[in-house]
Design a protein around this nucleic acid. Structure first.
Length: 497
RNA sequence: CGCGGGGUAGAGCAGCCUGGCAGCUCGUCUGGCUCAUAACCAGAAGGUCACCGGUUCAAAUCCGGUCCCCGCAACCA
């Protein structure tokens, strides 16, 4: 069976999930559901990044492990309540991950790619962090109005630059490796002109994974975090699983962490002698009502609140219809309500409602004889869009069908056909509409699973049975059998005022 | 000259790679329809494609320059 391994980044859990975190996870869920629909075996992994010093600060007075357990549970609960279908929720404090990092470190070390060096930088005691010279105002840290001290620290370094040529060659030979294209150019420029060896240990930290053989150092959190993609699928403890799932098909990331995933990570894998992921896709960021999302502005959006207010499906629909995947966008509750009323209530919900009402009136709620319809190229373009991670394009295709169906009703005027007793034409019209609704439900399933299920139920289909059949048979025309009884229900999306 | 994205109708965006009548959704206006959730369908108005210059029979698109907005910038998650 064909497999599909998709990941989200692992998240820092020094706060609760924001709409931005949910965005990546929902995108991964849509693609995971789509690939399951195609009959592939899917591994969808997400999780938490727990070895950062930030977590210690966030825990404050409390026991760090206890704090992390609580927060990880909160995140997992949140993802569950958003209806995500991840089948692996990894935590980097898991024993298996510690062992993975140790094995990975030793492998890379044995290749001669780790060396001891020193890192020198400007350290601001107020920030408790290194600062950039370019950030200073009058040689002072702008936040604390203090002159930072020059600190020198011994660190282990990873020979990233050793892989510069291999990376460039790989990216060149695999044009689909980094998407969208604009990000590939950004990475190429970085690898070519700016990439240096990178420090992968910290001497000053007291939280994190100890460096094998030199326990007073802790592994740099990024070096540790990236390895989660291996530990989750059995890198140290399950060779069969590891061979089945690795390399990953798709790492979904935010545009801010593209360099880590497209330069550092592939170089790490090259060093360890492992194959590279097939595709890294970076999505954009969004602003909230045109403003940058920020805690200090207090304009953060809680995905759970949104989902409770409008429903998971509506939130999913809005995020992936409104914002072209890969680009930046704007989140606005007013526009979400706008999309709800026009796209969901007026176009989709009303279409389902009017078709089912007419079928009740004119054929007693029974599916008429099979007739030819107008799907045309909808499925091929839908598949192509999803294959290329063009999520909003896939939805555009579905809405194209919805509009065609609404137009078809006006052209055919079934109410006239009924009056004139044009039985054949009336039945054909209704069949085409009903069968089109079945296809629309299938296409919507990865994006709006609950809505798709409701549509199947209203079409009188049994949901579990519908999902157990092979997808190839589901998307041929004419699967809705004549004589079948419909089960019209409440409108899918009542208008909101 | 740090890196990247952007400036197209009242709002939000696509088109640019590969030049060929400027397109989509919302909103506005007019008409049609009555199966439907005041929903649906048809049509109309509305743009100096940020600005300047160049290439070309032809530029939103290619080239050079200018202005403006936004994100990122190695211990930031």
């Amino acid at each position: 069976m064909k497999t599909f391994y998709i990941t989200t980044p692992i998240y820092y859990i020094n706060g609760k999930p924001s709409i931005g975190h949910a965005y990546t996870a929902i995108a991964a869920d849509i693609l995971a559901r789509y690939h399951r629909m195609l009959g592939e075996e899917v591994m969808f992994q997400t999780g938490t990044d727990e070895n950062s010093q930030k977590n210690v600060e966030a825990a404050k007075e409390r026991d760090v492990k206890e704090y992390l357990d609580e927060m990880a549970a909160l995140w997992e609960r949140t993802f569950d309540s958003l209806g995500l279908t991840h089948n692996r929720f990894i935590r980097t404090t898991e024993v298996a991950h510690y062992n993975s990092v140790e094995k990975f470190w030793k492998t890379v070390e044995s290749k001669g790619d780790i060396y001891l060096g020193s890192y020198e930088g400007l350290y601001c005691q107020g920030c408790e962090a290194f600062v950039n010279e370019s950030d200073l105002v009058d040689d002072q840290c702008p936040h604390h109005k203090k002159v930072p001290k020059t600190i020198k620290e011994n660190n282990y370094f990873f020979r990233l630059t050793k892989y510069r040529d291999d990376l460039l060659a790989y990216i060149d030979e695999h044009p689909d490796f980094i998407q969208p294209e604009a990000r590939r150019n950004e990475v190429l420029s970085y690898v070519r002109n700016f990439m240096t060896d990178i420090s992968i240990s910290r001497e000053t930290m007291n939280w994190g994974i100890p460096v094998p053989g030199d326990e007073k150092h802790r592994v740099y959190v990024w070096f540790d975090a990236l390895i989660n993609y291996l530990s989750g699928v059995g890198y140290v403890d399950d060779t069969t699983a590891f061979e089945k799932w690795w390399p990953a098909n798709l790492h979904l990331v935010g545009k801010d962490i593209i360099k880590f995933h497209c330069a550092l990570w592939p170089a790490m894998l090259m060093s360890a002698g492992l194959p590279l992921p097939k595709n890294v896709f970076a999505h954009g960021f969004f602003t909230i009502d045109g403003q940058k999302m920020s805690k200090s502005l207090g304009n953060t959006v809680d995905p759970v609140e949104m989902a409770e207010k409008y429903g998971n499906d509506v939130l999913r629909y809005f995020l992936f219809r409104e914002i072209p995947f890969g680009g930046d966008g704007d989140f606005s509750e007013a526009r979400l309500v706008g999309r709800y009323n026009t796209d969901l209530a007026n176009e989709l919900g009303n279409l389902v409602n009017r078709v089912l009402t007419m079928t009740e009136k004119y054929t007693n709620g029974t599916v008429p004889e099979v007739a030819d319809g107008f799907l045309a190229g909808a499925w091929p373009s839908y598949h192509l869009a999803l294959e290329e991670n063009r999520l909003s394009d896939a939805l555009d295709i579905v809405w194209g069908l919805i509009r065609q169906a609404n137009q078809f009703i006006d052209q055919q005027q079934p109410w006239q056909l009924a009056k004139l007793e044009e039985k054949k034409m009336l039945n054909d019209t209704l069949y085409v509409l009903l069968e089109t609704l079945r296809h629309i439900a299938w296409m919507l399933y990865p994006f709006m699973p609950t809505t798709a299920e409701k549509m199947f139920v209203q079409l009188g289909l049994e949901t579990p049975k519908e999902f157990s059949q092979s997808f190839e048979s589901a998307w041929v025309w004419g699967e809705l059998k004549s004589g079948h009884k419909l089960a019209k229900g409440e409108p899918l999306f009542p208008r909101k005022e």
